[in-house]
Design a protein around this nucleic acid. Structure first.
Lengths: 143, 143
DNA sequence: TCTTGACCTAAACCTGACTTTAGCTTCTAT
DNA sequence: ATAGAAGCTAAAGTCAGGTTTAGGTCAAGA
């Protein structure tokens, strides 16, 4: 199946200008053009977009994603590099999840803090509360 | 306790230029200066930095963090707004964690994919594998 | 007193990831 | 045949979040 840039934009929610930008950055090295110079997206490019989305959401830069896509074009000789890359990304994302979980706990503490302050009518009341009156599940995340 | 900008930078790992930038953006509305015009950080500013770090790691912009810090200066009348803000942030972070977990699963699929390709010596072998030969735990995350 | 390291400001610069603009071409439906 | 929608390019613009630069000032020890 072949798709125009507008169809791809519509189907994926990615702006046309972004698709053209990705193309300019070399993310679709094998994309064809019509005789008139118009981009013809195929399922190859659709799959590439899925990979881009995955890697982007893992925090990878466009530049590095492009590098990876170049490796994909090199065939089986780059399998090792590509495997390494994904394992590294996985570790990265695991770290990000842990960091976010820590953030979540601190936010929970703050939610408790403000809930309590509002119940008491003032911040002073909760500011100087002894630690053992802070609920156990947020106690350790006081900031 | 009072600290110079260099001491704060050293203790927190935040660059001096960043601390000055935060100050320029109005994040330390009550910070004092020495007679000579030199910034004097107190525990108030250290606490503000902890809040900034927490909110930043939840994905909040500097501008919005500053807005929140202004509310803090308004006293108990803004307790409601502040409570709302933290509850909204908490929800946001929960969504981010879910998104990252989805990303993690897709990366796991890719790790399996490349591990298998390398074991087989080629990508072709794994590209056309029937779904029931993909391990259960990653099967649904194929991209 | 003098030197030296730490600090100051304003303004310019930088990077990443896009988006917008201007002017032009191609395609499709009537 | 032609109008209008959709596509194209190069180049400039935008935004966040800093960092760097240039040219000073301040403060503490010898």
């Amino acid at each position: 199946m072949y798709y125009s840039i507008g169809e791809v934009a519509n189907a994926t929610g990615i702006a046309i200008s972004t698709l053209r930008y990705y193309d300019r950055e070399g993310m679709f090295p094998n994309m064809e053009r019509s005789n008139g110079g118009i981009r013809v997206f195929s399922d190859t490019e659709i799959n590439t977009l899925k990979v881009i989305e995955c890697l982007k959401s893992s925090g990878m830069s466009i530049k590095s994603i492009k590098e990876f896509l170049v490796w994909c074009g090199e065939g089986d000789t780059s399998l090792g590099k590509r495997r390494e890359m994904f394992h590294a990304r996985l570790e990265e994302v695991e770290k990000q999840i842990e960091a976010l979980q820590a953030t979540k706990n601190r936010l929970k503490y703050k939610c408790w803090y403000y809930d309590t302050a509002i119940a008491a009518g003032s911040e002073e009341a909760v500011k100087n509360l002894p630690v053992d009156e802070i609920p156990e599940d947020v106690r350790d995340y006081k900031i």
